[in-house]
């Protein structure tokens, strides 16, 4: 915890968990989708469900989907921006046992036909955890620079990915691999020490067997 965590974040109110955290979840979902969103079905749990309107959680989630950051003053009017941008959204009450009280599940279709389903929780002070992506366990908080690669589960994939990273002088801080079934869809979540350049992401995306690459630039302290 540093001094700018105490005097910060700079955010659109009223609540770090219900507004800032929600905007961040929306923004991360957009980055994971990788294109403009066209349709979003948003399920709210627990406290999100009970107080979302008064906290502007709905505006924050939709604003994030439209690419607004936690301190973007357009968040207040994001629902209007959504209709301008052609984003259709709907909210429903989700039910789940043992979910964190501030959990949201976002089903989003992109304009190019891509689809993503992200479950995430806002865990306080604007901090969030992405719990799952398309049903695959995720569990990252976006503090570090994070690569999320969806690919076919096949021999040598992980070795190839790490050799591309190492050729770009990037050190892997953590790496986790999840798969739906042997030979099926798999997801690699890599937290990096350095910053990934666009050319690296394109190189990864061109690798045979890689379906999708998303990159979240980590939260620099003090921002």
């Amino acid at each position: 915890m540093d001094l700018f965590d105490i005097l910060g974040p700079v955010m659109v109110g009223p609540s770090s968990s219900h507004t800032a955290g929600a905007a961040r979840i929306g923004l991360i979902t957009r980055l994971l989708l990788g294109c403009e969103p066209a349709q979003a079905r948003i399920g709210l749990y627990g406290s999100f469900q009970k107080t979302y309107r008064g906290h502007g959680t709905d505006k924050a989630l939709v604003g994030g989907l439209l690419g607004m950051a936690v301190d973007d003053e357009r968040l207040r009017d994001s629902l209007r921006y959504a209709s301008d941008a052609g984003l259709n959204y709907s909210f429903y009450n989700a039910e789940a046992r043992d979910a964190h009280p501030n959990t949201v599940i976002m089903d989003v279709d992109g304009v190019d036909g891509r689809h993503i389903c992200v479950q995430a929780a806002s865990v306080g002070g604007g901090e969030i955890v992405v719990q799952s992506i398309n049903g695959l366990e995720a569990g990252f908080n976006g503090h570090e620079n994070t690569l999320i690669i969806t690919q076919r589960d096949a021999k040598g994939m992980i070795a190839q990915i790490s050799s591309v990273l190492s050729a770009n002088s990037l050190n892997i801080a953590t790496m986790r691999v999840f798969r739906r079934s042997a030979g099926g869809e798999a997801m690699v979540i890599i937290e990096l020490d350095g910053d990934a350049e666009q050319s690296l992401l394109e190189c990864l995306e061109r690798m045979p067997g890689v379906y999708h690459v998303a990159y979240l630039a980590g939260r620099t302290e003090g921002q």
Binding site: V10, V12, T19, R76, G125
Partner: peptide, 10 residues
């Protein structure tokens, strides 16, 4: 929903 600095919280 104005922009503020959490100090220490919103």
């Amino acid at each position: 929903m104005g922009k503020i600095v959490a100090a220490p919280t919103a």
